[in-house]
């Protein structure tokens, strides 16, 4: 087990700069997510850490070792692919034992560790099967067992759960987290599923067009996004136009948008859909932001309902429990309100 440090890493493909000046620390034993939309080069970053690609600048360290010149074969990493990449010509046990045989650990040691790894993923009884005889979830577990059986220093996962259906995915998330805790391996995974990233990880890094936009614990990043992109990408956010655009924030702003104490300048203001309440009358409490708006849409989705309201030159998305939203005909005036602390102040450049 070891910490991983990515320091000012740059990677180019011809004229195209895939990664520019990316830095992130991955402390020992943690669970980390690299999150970004498609084209953010998050997989490129993972493949660079893995050693399939070499950096054009900057340094990657695994433990105390600088690995910039070490190819993937020698980096002692475990890797899991989106499509599992199990060897179709080998049994489950041979798949798991592949890395051990390469390392020539000896037949009895090999058998023992294959058994251990398969037991860890609860597939001890399926060692003789071929991959095509397994379900998607089972293949996933085999791929995980294969990645950790050599006791790598770091486990890298490339969109590991995106091929599974939703309920299985949630089960596998829990399972993945349990196994990661049990063996305490530093784990870095790439995903475009923000919920997965927020649930699983101790720290997330948001990538966009090959730049690390923000990294930190999920709560920090969610509550204090550094820019409009992060606010909108991670969770949902209503960006409030025309407010705080490079101005000094006044507080309290009567009848307008209130910001939390301590916020001086902002490039934009935002509010999460779940922070907003809808009422038919004007709320009179102190310390809340309020907007008079017209209800344009209401969608019932079981646990949560979504409303769209337009007011003050902005379109607001509101998410709440259905019974908390008053019965109002579409096109009627409503009041949107939220507490000052719920206004996200996106810092100025």
């Amino acid at each position: 087990m070891a910490e991983v440090s990515v320091h000012n890493v740059t990677k180019r493909f011809g004229k195209f700069t895939a990664l520019s000046d990316v830095s992130m620390e991955f402390p020992d034993g943690g669970f980390f997510a690299l999150l970004g939309p498609s084209g953010s080069c998050k997989t490129t970053l993972l493949r660079t850490i893995a050693g399939f690609l070499f950096t054009d600048g900057g340094t990657i360290r695994i433990g105390q070792q600088v690995v910039d010149d070490i190819p993937v074969e020698k980096r002692e990493i475990g890797l899991m692919f989106q499509n599992y990449a199990l060897f179709p010509n080998m049994t489950v046990a041979d798949n798991v034992g592949f890395g051990l045989r390469v390392r020539k650990v000896g037949a009895s040691e090999e058998r023992r560790r294959i058994g251990e790894a398969l037991d860890l993923v609860q597939l001890g009884h399926l060692g003789d099967r071929k991959p095509h005889q397994l379900s998607g979830g089972q293949r996933q577990r085999v791929a995980l067992a294969r990645a950790i059986v050599t006791r790598p220093r770091v486990l890298l996962l490339d969109e590991p759960l995106s091929a599974l259906d939703k309920s299985l995915r949630v089960d596998m998330q829990i399972e993945l987290k349990r196994i990661q805790r049990e063996i305490g391996i530093t784990t870095i995974f790439v995903t475009h599923d923000q919920e997965e990233a927020l649930t699983l990880s101790d720290k997330i890094g948001i990538l966009r067009e090959g730049r690390m936009i923000q990294s930190g614990p999920p709560r920090d990043v969610y509550n204090n996004p550094v820019d409009v992109f992060t606010a909108e990408f991670l969770g949902d956010a209503n960006i409030i136009a025309g407010r705080g655009q490079g101005q000094r924030l006044e507080r309290p702003q009567a009848g307008g948008i209130l910001v939390p104490p301590g916020s001086d300048t902002a490039s934009a203001l935002a509010v999460r859909p779940e922070s907003i309440s809808i009422s038919t009358f004007e709320p009179i409490q102190d310390g809340i932001s309020k907007v008079n708006a017209t209800l344009v849409q209401r969608m019932f989705a079981g646990a949560m309902s979504t409303c769209i309201a337009e007011g003050d030159g902005n379109t607001y998305k509101v998410i709440g429990r259905d019974l908390d939203i008053p019965e109002v005909a579409l096109g009627q005036k409503v009041w949107l309100s939220w507490k000052a602390v719920h206004t996200i102040v996106i810092p100025g450049q």
């Binding site: 475990g78 390469v102 050599t150």
Partner: peptide, 24 residues
Amino acid sequence: NLIDAARSMGAGKHTILWRIILPL
């Protein structure tokens, strides 16, 4: 990805040729 997976497990070119590429 099979070749990449084998490499990540430490397999050299010969092992990949004999145990992955040729059999498949």
